[in-house]
């Protein structure tokens, strides 16, 4: 029964990727494809290294911001005395049902020179905030789009935690800071790690958020790939960049799963 699927997977998964790898290892000379490392050499020129570095750095900053903002949310949500858990969970899932391009686009109205934030700041007599079309706006867009991916896995791990462990620690004289740092935080690490994977991966590969909020001169590796395939029409270089991006993702996923070796809780699906 698996034969038709094997053919399907070969056609739509294996061959497309093989083609991308093939293109990345060729340069076109007089309409003929010749083997060469040229595209990879080019990808490691300083200007492209800078683009890749910026993509990784902004994705890391966004991931960190998501942990800092999302952990307390998950913690409060999972705590015993918080009663409207399901409602809050629902409220964090609902925004994903609205087109994410449109939601991101909406930040223009909030952030622009005479936008909502600046009108509010002016009303309070505070100086203007000009972050639109900069990397700050891109980070904000990433945090906005991917925050639920951090909150949900941490929440699902915290909720399953054995409450009697915490009570035992308290009985044994641990203060609340010790309970958090030595018990709750380490036990919630699987959730944090799957959150990191789920935020970092889409953040490092995005080209829409940087396109909409970062302005025209702003470039991440996703924008570079899009440009090579659709604007410059250099498939060979675009393919090399895609292969590098794939390796970047495989490397980070395996690092995260190494840290998370003996735990598969906290997965969203």
């Amino acid at each position: 029964m698996s034969a038709p699927y094997l053919f399907w997977a070969l056609l739509f998964i294996v061959i497309p990727i093989a083609l991308v790898i093939y293109y990345s290892l060729c340069t076109e000379v007089d309409g003929r494809m010749l083997f060469s490392w040229e595209n990879y050499k080019r990808a490691f020129e300083p200007i492209y290294i800078r683009v890749m570095w910026r993509s990784v750095l902004l994705a890391l900053i966004s991931t960190l911001a998501c942990i800092l903002a999302g952990y307390p949310v998950a913690y409060i949500m999972a705590s015993k005395e918080y009663s409207s858990k399901n409602l809050l969970l629902f409220l964090f899932l609902v925004p994903m049902w609205m087109n994410f391009l449109l939601r991101t686009y909406s930040w223009l109205t909030i952030l622009e020179k005479n936008g909502l934030i600046n009108t509010l700041l002016a009303f309070l007599g505070l100086p203007k905030l000009n972050i639109l079309y900069s990397d700050k706006a891109v980070v904000l867009g990433m945090v906005y789009n991917f925050l639920p991916f951090m909150i949900l896995p941490i929440y699902s791990v915290l909720k399953k935690m054995d409450q009697s462990l915490i009570e035992a620690a308290q009985d044994l004289g641990a203060d609340s800071k010790t309970v958090f740092l030595r018990l709750i935080l380490p036990m919630s690490m699987p959730g944090v790690i799957s959150g990191i994977t789920m935020v970092f991966m889409p953040a490092v590969t995005t080209f829409i958020i940087s396109d909409l909020l970062g302005g025209a001169q702003f470039m991440l590796i996703g924008n570079l790939i899009e440009q090579q395939f659709l604007k410059v029409n250099n498939w060979n270089f675009g393919s090399a960049l895609s292969v590098i991006l794939m390796f970047l993702i495989i490397a980070s996923v395996s690092i995260f799963s190494m840290v998370d070796k003996n735990n598969d809780e906290g997965a969203l699906f």
Binding site: L19, I250, V253
Partner: peptide, 21 residues
């Protein structure tokens, strides 16, 4: 492992690889 590729791979790589195909 092959089945997992479209889930793990960045959307943009899935997109360009299918376009190339």
């Amino acid at each position: 492992a092959i089945t997992n590729i479209p889930v793990v791979n960045p959307d943009i790589v899935t997109g360009v690889s299918l376009m190339v195909l």
